[in-house]
């Protein structure tokens, strides 16, 4: 292996990002992943385990991990923390009943040492539903303004229509890239 090969490999590695998508069950994590990847979203089942997708976007190679949000799976979330560049927290904006659960789960995640360096993107999903709370309401309910440990941003989106998914991911990429990559 010549020096050039090594350099090329390093360069490739450098353009790779690992994104971890978490949230309560029924938040729409898998739907976001599939919609972003241009797949059919009408037949998605509750995730038993996890999905991983590798896709190219803006010249970056994104490894997106979508882990099931059922209560019985949440204790396994920690197995996916290692070397995560970006955390995508997905919220069902219409699920008022469990916003408090949602806040607690998120705040306990943010205490995780292995996620300390990760950028946080909150997707206030299901904005297409008439009963959905606005992203401002979600921001308040999740007490996002109290987060000082991570770069964060909240974006209202709809996984079903695909609205704002790109905007969210673009913000996430920009933030991570500014943090970990040397600009060419």
């Amino acid at each position: 292996m010549g020096l050039l090969t090594i350099l090329k490999k390093m360069k490739q590695k450098e353009r790779e990002m690992r994104l971890l998508m978490l949230g309560l069950d029924n938040a729409g994590k898998t739907t976001i992943l599939k919609k972003f990847n241009g797949e059919d979203v009408s037949t998605i089942s509750p995730t038993l385990g996890f999905n991983i997708k590798t896709l190219e976007h803006r010249g970056f190679k994104l490894n997106i991990w979508d882990v099931g949000g059922q209560k019985s799976l949440r204790s396994y979330w920690r197995n996916y923390f290692e070397s995560t560049d970006g955390l995508v927290w997905v919220v069902d904006s219409a699920d008022r009943l469990r916003l408090e659960d949602c806040r607690k789960e998120l705040s306990s995640l943010l205490l995780e040492e292995r996620l300390a360096g990760a950028t946080l993107l909150v997707f206030a999903n299901k904005q297409d539903l008439p009963g959905a709370l606005s992203k401002e309401a979600i921001q308040e309910a999740l007490a996002l303004d109290e987060i000082k440990s991570h770069h964060w941003c909240i974006i209202g989106c709809s996984a079903v229509t695909g609205k704002n998914l790109l905007a969210g991911v673009d913000w996430l990429l920009d933030d991570i890239a500014a943090r970990i990559f040397t600009i060419d």
Binding site: R96, L97, L99, E100, D101, E105, L133
Partner: peptide, 12 residues
């Protein structure tokens, strides 16, 4: 705990 105590709270 959140499921037991907080789930009945309706926000918004």
């Amino acid at each position: 705990t959140p499921a037991g105590t907080g789930s009945t709270k309706v926000v918004g």
